[in-house]
Amino acid sequence: MQRLVTRYAIVAAGLMLIGCASRKPPTRELESASRSIGAAQEAGAEEHPQAMLHLNLARESLTAGERYIAEREMADARLLLRRARADAEMAGALARLGNTRVEATRIAAQARELERQLRSASR
């Protein structure tokens, strides 16, 4: 009898250990997602359509993740927060790419203006 109790206690403890991880609120993932979303905003994601798309996806996933935390569904929350961060990283990268393109256009326009000056100076 004692051995049976011990065996089930061990199994129960094991199950609790598996369950433990999924009961802790995913604060690290929450912080990480929020930070990435902030960085994407600062990089100007809202000014580039593709970046904006991913920023919105990130925000939606963050909101859903927070809801899951409130409902104590920690495993699902963790998944969604990691999704939020991934979309935010995409948004940030797209914003940075968009910015370099804008700057390249500006430099090209300046070069054309300079060419025009050169041509009129050599007449």
């Binding site: 999704r83 991934a86 940030g92 990268a93 797209l94 940075r96 790419l97 370099t100 390249a104």
Partner: peptide, 18 residues
Amino acid sequence: IALRLTQAAMVEGQARHA
């Protein structure tokens, strides 16, 4: 998640190169 992070790395690479 893996797909998005891979795409983000590719875009980031393009941005830094540009």
